[in-house]
Design a binder for these strands. Sequence first.
DNA 1: TTTATTAAAGACAAATGACTCTTAAAACGT
DNA 2: ACGTTTTAAGAGTCATTTGTCTTTAATAAA
Lengths: 145, 145
Amino acid sequence: MQVLSKASINGLRALLYLAAQERREGYTGIREMADELDISFHFLTKILQELTQKGVLRSYRGPNGGVALARDPGTLYLEELVLMMEGDDFFDTCLLGLPGCGERKPCPVHAFWKETKAALKKEFQTTSLEELGQQIRVGKVRLAD
Amino acid sequence: MQVLSKASINGLRALLYLAAQERREGYTGIREMADELDISFHFLTKILQELTQKGVLRSYRGPNGGVALARDPGTLYLEELVLMMEGDDFFDTCLLGLPGCGERKPCPVHAFWKETKAALKKEFQTTSLEELGQQIRVGKVRLAD
DNA sequence: TTTATTAAAGACAAATGACTCTTAAAACGT
DNA sequence: ACGTTTTAAGAGTCATTTGTCTTTAATAAA
C-alpha cells in the first residue's frame, strides 16, 4: 500500500530532517541530506527545487549554501505539504476510482473510505513539522536506518 | 491518493459485478462486463485470467462462456482479494517508506499510520462480496456511472 | 464438420513514475 | 579575475504499470 509517491516521501523526509536540526540559522547542503537520508543527490535536488519554488524552502548557492525552511516549522502542517506535493485532490479520491463518487452516487465502499480519508486528513492537519522534528531530535523516532 | 492499482480496482469491480448478479448459475461474458464497467475488454481479460488462475473465478470458453465466481461470495472477503492482487505485504507498509519501520525503530508517523492500517485491514476482513453485492442489487450503491 | 463464439496466452506498445546526467548559474574565497 | 562549491534547469534513461493486439484453444450450435 503505497500512499505517497517516492518524490513526496523523500521531500517530506528532507523537510523533517531540516525541522529536526538544532540550529536554526544557515543552510543545509543537499549533498549532506542526500547522504544522511540515503537518497540520490540528483533526485533529491530535483524534489527540493520544487519545494523552493513553492515557497516552503529557501535556497542559497555557493560555498556553505544549501536549503533551509522558509517558514517556521510550527506553521507547516503535513496537510499543506502533502497537498502541495501530491495535488489538491489528494483527499478526494474514490477507493474504486469511480469519477464523481459521493453521497449521491456512492461506490460500494464509499461510506467507510470517507471516514478513513477524514481521519487521515485530520491527522495531517494537526501534525506540524515542528512537532515531528522534536520527536526526531529526542531520538524517539528515525528518518533513516 | 491512489491506494489500489488500476488492475486491482478493475478486478474488484468485476468481482462485485458478478456478486451483484441475480442469477447464480451460468457464466458472464467478459465482453459484457467490460462494456458495463467501462473497462477495455482486453485489459479486463488479462486481469480476470489471473483471478481465474488463483481460484477465485472459474471460466468457460465457447458460446455462452465467460467467468463466474468459483466460491460462495459470502466467503470472499475484501482482504483476501486485495492481498491476492496487491501482494501479501499490502498492510505492512511504512508511510515514509522506511525499511523495517516498526515499534522498535518507528518513523515519525508510525503510531498513527499503524492505527489507520489496522482499521482498513479490519474493514476489509469483515466485508464480503456477498454483502457489497447485495447493496449493489438494491441500488444503494453503484459500480460505474 | 464447419462456423461462430468465447476465454487463454503472450507479444507488443504507450504512458507514467523514478531516477540520472550534463550543463548552466550563482556565490564565495583567494 | 579565477577556481571551487553549491543549487537550478532540463534533457535523457530506465523500470513498472497500463493498455492493445494477435494468435491459439476450447466449446457449442448449425
